[in-house]
Design a protein around this nucleic acid. Structure first.
Length: 583
DNA sequence: GTCCGTCTAT
């Protein structure tokens, strides 16, 4: 099952000839067995025992009934059990059909094993069952789920180009959704336009996907234009479309427009559901308007829409953001009173709240409670608590929690690694940091520029400028582009060592590389020149800074005032400061 | 009986 490279997926495609599709012979299940699968199967054990009963029946139940059983198992997320039962069926030589193979492929895809899914294709060939559009849609979704975007797009193009099957609206939607969820909004829009020209016209799903992508990008104008386009074409709207729009508007704080679309929706007899209310509540919470959010919650209850776990989590997070942990905790308890079991999000949100208030004892206590509730801490839970522990300097606890995570917890992600490295560096544990860093590099762990910026910052702050410099030089080799933070980190490092020429060179370099310095960069460089009493050069940067509309923060201003006290000659440049920077 | 779209945490 292993070792299917992208080109090997293509090895299966020659099988996909029309002859195979034509020589399909239908495998009809036998009629006469009445089993209400939905009522009988409540858990995995039920499913397996029903299966065992079914295979012993004479005559055998229909293939449809087996399919129903598998579908219910998939809904319960027992994907690997579907695979086992399927294999059992094959051993018993029980007939299968196209639906069942598609279900099998879907199980593998949902297990994030798209290679195994492709390895089902030979069964189609052997049995003469045709591959259909659903097969490809499922495979495409599986590829996207494992971030194999190029393979997915290649497969899609091949299917279309070689007329392997007629792409339907679901296929377009699958590809569009896969692309849009990974940031390719433009390509998603192109596909919508492509659909308009072809036989498969865009439907409500096509528009929903593009509108959502635009809303997530903050391009509400674009989204609203598409909404109008739908109206012109007579494609009806639904709560998904309005959900995306309202969420986008809430996130931009455009409350007037939220109201407009809310009434527009209701006028179309589309009634807001728990999703839409929760999005509004979340938007209000993120703006600090938790009281208003609670009012919306009361309103939805009056309208007969019950808040769900996410609604409560969002309000808890709202109180946490304002530092009102007692209130957040009260929501948590209310939720339990209402028999809504807290999930791992609830815990992560509360733990984050306590960490922000530096109440690590409370946070640690909650971490302990998670398993008592039969839940498992997520990567985010660990990242949050690790960050909190390092923040208050509880290094020993941080190390213990990290070890626990490595031993029994979820897989650390790039954020975990960055947090731990940053913590080690911050407390001078350079050797431990570097050994972890080297280990991660050896394992070719997923990294990004933020991760490397943490390492560069750590090295600079610990006086290892040479090492930082060589890591920095390496970035382009591993295909990472420094961002404004990366450059600023390096500039800070140079300034700390008094290497002002190097700092200047880096400032020019970032500009040349199309990454203009920001407020922070200028503050750092001006402070660097200030500390070395290089006032005339400092003036150059201050001018540049003011021209770009940046200003000082309090600490730079304070530093400047102290310097002026000692060197009255600096006063010559103060008018510049007064006119442009308010200090 | 199989495949597509809206909400929460670092």
């Amino acid at each position: 099952m292993r070792g299917f490279s992208p080109c090997k997926y293509n090895n299966y495609i020659p099988f996909l000839s029309s002859s195979i599709i034509r020589c399909y012979s239908s495998v009809k299940g036998k009629i006469g067995v009445h089993i209400n699968v939905e009522n009988e199967v409540k858990c995995l054990d039920d499913a397996v025992s029903l299966f065992n009963r079914m295979v012993r029946m004479n005559p055998l139940p229909s293939v449809t009934l087996f399919c129903k059983l598998y579908k219910i198992m998939i809904d319960m997320k027992h994907y690997s059990s579907v695979v086992s039962l399927f294999q059992e069926m094959r051993k018993l030589r029980i007939p299968i059909n196209d639906f069942m193979l598609n279900i099998l492929i879907n199980s593998y895809c949902l297990m994030h094993c798209v290679d195994c899914a492709f390895s089902v294709l030979p069964i189609y060939m052997k049995t003469g069952i045709p591959l259909d559009v659903v097969t490809f849609n499922t495979l495409l979704r599986g590829l996207f789920a494992q971030n194999k975007i190029r393979d997915a797009v290649e497969l899609f193009k091949k299917v279309v180009r070689e007329n392997i099957c007629e792409p339907n609206q679901v296929m377009y939607a699958t590809v569009m959704n896969g692309l849009s969820k990974r940031g390719h909004t433009q390509k998603t829009i192109s596909l919508l336009r492509l659909m308009e020209q072809g036989n498969t016209k865009p439907n409500i799903y096509s528009y929903a996907i593009v509108i959502d992508a635009l809303c997530k990008d903050g391009n509400l104008d674009g989204a609203i234009n598409l909404l109008n386009e739908m109206k012109q074409k007579g494609i009806p709207q639904d709560r998904f479309i309005y959900g995306s729009l309202i969420d986008g508007l809430c996130k931009l704080g455009q409350w007037e427009k939220v109201r407009t679309f809310f009434s527009e929706m209701v006028n179309l007899n589309i009634y807001p559901d728990v999703y839409i209310f929760t999005m509004v509540i979340d938007g209000l919470c993120k703006e600090g308007k938790v009281e208003a959010a609670e009012e919306v919650m009361e309103h939805m209850i009056k309208k007969g829409v019950e808040p769900n776990i996410i609604t409560y989590n969002v309000i808890m997070d709202g109180y946490c953001l304002r530092g009102q942990l007692v209130r957040a905790r009260r929501i948590f308890d209310i939720m339990i009173d209402k028999c809504i079991e807290p999930d791992i999000f609830s815990y992560s949100i509360l733990i984050n709240g306590y960490c922000k208030k530096k109440k690590l004892a409370k946070a640690m206590q909650l971490l302990g409670e998670i398993s008592q509730r039969g839940l498992k801490p997520s990567t985010v839970t660990y990242n949050t608590i690790l960050h909190g522990l390092f923040e208050v300097g509880r290094i020993g606890d941080a190390k213990r929690v990290y070890a626990e995570m490595l031993y029994a917890g979820p897989k650390p992600d790039i954020c975990t690694h960055s947090t731990v490295l940053d913590g080690y560096f911050r407390y001078g544990l350079v050797e431990e940091a570097m050994s972890l860093f080297n280990k991660l590099e050896r394992k070719r762990e997923n990294t990004n520029i933020g991760f490397y910026t943490v390492v560069l910052n750590g090295l600079c702050k610990n006086g290892k400028l040479d090492e930082a410099h060589s890591v920095f030089e390496k970035l382009s080799l591993i295909g990472l582009t420094p961002d404004v933070r990366t450059y600023t980190t390096m500039i800070t490092g140079f300034c700390l060592q008094g290497l002002l020429d190097e700092a200047k060179r880096m400032l020019r370099k970032m500009e040349d590389n199309g990454c203009p310095p920001n407020n922070v960069t200028y503050r750092v460089i001006v402070q660097g020149f200030l500390r070395c009493s290089k006032f005339s050069e400092m003036e150059t940067f201050m001018k540049e800074m003011a021209d770009r509309g940046f200003s000082f923060d309090a600490s730079t201003a304070e530093l400047l005032v102290n310097i002026v006290r000692e060197n009255p000659s600096v006063l010559d440049i103060i008018p510049e400061l007064h006119s442009k920077n308010k200090y």
